[in-house]
Amino acid sequence: MAWKTAFRSLYYQGAPEPEDPVLERGKTALLVIDVQNTYLERPDRAALPPEEQARFDAWTPFHDRMHGTVIPTIAKLIAAFRAGGHEVIFARIACQTLDGRDRSLSQKKPGWNNLLLPKDEASSQIVPALAPQGDEIVVTKTTDSALTGTNLRLILTNLGITHVVCAGIFTDQCVASTVRSLADESFDVIVVEDGCAAGSYELHLKELEIINMIYCAVMSSDELLAYLPR
C-alpha cells in the first residue's frame, strides 16, 4: 500500500518497506487528540482591524481542512471503531482551576500556547460532531503529550492495548508529542494523515515526515480501516 513508501524523510530513503500492522480487537484503540471547541471558534472578520484580518486569513486554510477533511475523517474512524468493538479514547487540553494555576509552564508562556481552558467551560469540550459516547474515556491534560500529562499509559495498559491509532490536532505539537511518548513506551502507533491538521499544511506534511517510520506509521484513513477488524 502507498503508506509504506510515503512520508519518508532522508533517514529512511531506501529502507525496507514496513510490515502490515496486525490490529486485534481488544488490543487496538483510537486516540482523538484535542479536537476542541476553542480551536474551531472564529470571530467576525469584518469586525477585526487589518492586522487581525490578516491573521484571520492565515488561519482560514486550517479551518477549511478541519471542517472539510479532518472532522469528517475522525467521525468516520470513530464510527468504524465503535462498530468493531474497539476502544475510542479522547484527550483534551483543560485545567482544573478557573485561573489556570495548575497549568504546565508551556501553557503559561505568552503566545500561541498560552491557554486558559477551565475543564467545565464550553471552549474546552470536544467538538459536538465527535462527542464521546457512553463510557468512552476522556483524559484531561495541560501538556502537549496526552501520555505524560495524564494516566493514559496506565489506562492503555489496563485495557490491554498494544496499538494506538492517533488523530487530531495539532500535527506538529500535541499529536507529535503524544506519538513520541507512546512510541517511547513501546506502543505501536499509527497516525491517520487525513485525520490530522497543523497550523499550515506545510507544517503538517513536514511533521509527518519527521515522525514517520521511527515513532509511528503514517497512513490514510482508508488504508488504516483496511487493517481494522470489523
Score class of each variant (00 low, 15 high):
D44I: 04
S200C: 00
L205A: 09
D64E: 15
G168H: 07
L154C: 00
A29S: 09
S186N: 15
T142I: 10
I89Q: 01
A83W: 03
P49K: 03
D194N: 14
I214T: 14
T5G: 02
R92P: 09
Q13K: 01
P229M: 04
S123D: 12
D188P: 03
F62H: 05
R45L: 03
G199K: 14
L205R: 11
E41A: 04
G168S: 08
G14Q: 07
S186Y: 11
Q53M: 09
P50W: 07
H204G: 05
P118G: 03
G100C: 14
R180D: 01
R101A: 13
A6K: 15
G134N: 05
L10P: 02
T143W: 00
V175D: 10
Y11L: 14
I93E: 10
F187V: 05
A46I: 05
A79E: 15
H86G: 06
D184Y: 05
S106H: 14
Q173G: 00
I89P: 05
R25Y: 06
D188R: 14
M219I: 03
L116K: 07
I74Y: 04
V127K: 13
H204S: 02
K206Q: 04
P128Y: 07
G100M: 11
A226G: 11
Q53W: 08
R55W: 07
T157L: 10
